[in-house]
Structure formats: C-alpha cells, structure tokens
Design a protein around this nucleic acid. Sequence first.
DNA 1: TCAATGCACGC
DNA 2: CCCTTTTGCATTGA
Length: 362
Amino acid sequence: MVLFLDLDYFFAQVEEVEKPEYRDRPLVVCVYSGRTESSGVVSSANYVARRYGVKAGMPIRLAMGKLPSDSVYLPVRMEHYLKVSRDVMDIARKYSAKMRVESVDEAVLDVTEVVDGSFDKAREHAAKLKTEILERKSLKCSVGVAPNRVLAKMAAEAAKPDGLKVVNPEEVGVFLAGQPVEALPGVGHKTKSLLEDLGVRTVADLGRLDIDVLENVFGPKKARYVYLASRGLFDEPVQERGAAKQVSRILTLKRNTRSLDEVEHALAKALTQVLNRLSSLRMAATRLGIIVITSEIKTFTKQVEIRPGSSYDELMRLLRSMLQQVLSENPSLMLRRLGVRMSGLLSLTGQSTLTAWSEHES
DNA sequence: TCAATGCACGC
DNA sequence: CCCTTTTGCATTGA
C-alpha cells in the first residue's frame, strides 16, 4: 500500500506563507530568462492566479495578459524551496521508513507495514501527516493512498487542493474508468496524441486495448507500463533514490547568435556551475556533453568521454570543439540556449588527493 | 556499447 | 506561440 504526498502549488505556497499579505492576490513564481524584462515562464501559480487561467509552464508575458494589475510576480528562490522541502521530507520520513523523494514537492511512502495493511488506518495515518505538515510548516498538501504508486499519485492529484483520497482495492475500477488517459502518470502530450489516433481517450478505452497494439506504437517498456497502469496493476517496490547519474546546467543567451566568442562566457558559466555541483556531491564525471537549443527550440546534444578530474581548461576546450561541430553540421541554426552536461558519474569516496583517489561506480 | 534523440515531469 | 530548467528512462541507430 502506497501513500503519495504532493505539496500544493509548492513554490507559490511557500511565498504565500512567508508573505501573507500576498495570499489573496494572484501570485506567480517566475523563471526569468534575462532576455528581456519579462521573458521567461511561470514556474508556479497560486489558486487565485489559476482562476485567471494561469498555470506552470506558461510564458510570463502571456500570464501578465491574463492577470489583473494587482498581481504579484516573484522570481524563483530554488535554494530556499529546497530547504523547506527537506524539512517537509524529514517530517514525512517518520511516517514510513520505506520512502522515496520523487521531487522537490513529492514523496512516495510504502505504508503497508505501518498500517498493518488496513486502508482505514492508512487514512488516519495520512491525515496525521497532513496535520503535522500544516502545523509545523504551515503548508497544505494533498495525499493519495492506494494499492500502488501509480494509483496513489492519481489519487493525490484527484484530491487537490488540500485533500486526502483513499482508493481501496474495490474502488480501483471505478476510480480509473472515467479518467482521461493523460491522468495516468507517464502519459503526456505525445502519448495522449498517439493514443487518440488509436481511438483511445479514457483509461477505460485503454484498458480494452491489446498489448500487441501498444507495443507497435510505444515499444515494449512503455506498452507494458500503460497496459498494466490502465488496469491499475502496475506495481513496483518503493525504493530510495540512488546517487545522481548526471548533472547539467542550461543558460539562455541574451540574444540568438552563432558566434563562438559571444557564447564563450555562457559556456564557461554553465561549466563552472556544473563543476561546483559535482564537487558538492563529491562526484566526478566520465562524460562531458554540450546541449544546444536553437532559435526554433530544437535541441542538439554532443558528448565525449573524458578522464575524471580533467582540468577546467581541458573541459572548455572540448566544449568549444563540440559546439563548433554542431554549428558546422547545422549551418543555418541560431543558438538560443546553451548548456553543459556531465554524466557517467563516479562517487569520490574517502580522502582524495590531486593524484590519487578511490572511486566506484554509483 | 555508446551517442543522440525523445518523452515525461515537476514546479 | 510569447518558450525555463533538470533529471531519468527508453529508444534508435551505428
């Protein structure tokens, strides 16, 4: 049995809690790209802003067009939200030792043993968790309880905002049947559209499809997933998140360009940030990659094998070379955003010196 | 086995 | 379309 915890409109709610005077006004937390005064996207919006049709992922300028003039626009304070998130996760951890932090605002807990397999006890357990988060951090959240992770996430979604929904085994069929396919975790825009081509709009429609049909369209893994999930049967144990496998940073350029000189600074900045992150994780990388996003929002990537511990100058040299390649292979592309990724990460364990360290794959 | 791409997902 | 950012997983093609 799984309990899924989802903090409501998290970033915007954190801002509301700290600035109560904003609480009844439309509030949006924005990722400013720095291109122009108001370019960027909405990261999180409170429910007042949502009533005007504003939601996460929307360009800030579009949101500004929809919202009244007394609305509040705040820049993301990621480090701060991470701190608040850690506090909440520490509370949640007391409700089951089997827990996985899914993201900054989500966690999954296997509560089977804690509640003795009883869905009634699980409801009380979840209610206590909600109360404790509200009392200690003044934050509202939504919680779903169900026989597996997929159903629990959907239950939490259905409970929003500030809700608690238990879907016990007898209710699974009814709970799933009426939902649109995109309510299934893992079904986004593309998958929804492909399913529509198959005449599938609801989870119930999906539940009538043969797995062979799904395999032809989606490949074996995803086919198996949607096949089982649509029947409420996709189940996997709740496992703690492992060590990071990659670290990346992407920056938006002031203006589109093809000039290496003009983007050198951005590349250096992204690399420095990635290296700092790696260092704080006490990890090293065996691959270095560049991420190019064009004026047409198309993405190109390149990567090369590196010696872990390569110098900054060496890494910059490789990045320039990869960028040069992308540009020459695509003579007409204009750079809009530029990023650096390091992967094939190794945990640096023990006391390392410049010349000798011990490491193992993570 | 690796490089590149695509999809999803969070806010 | 006015368009951020980060990570993980899967697929595909060499």
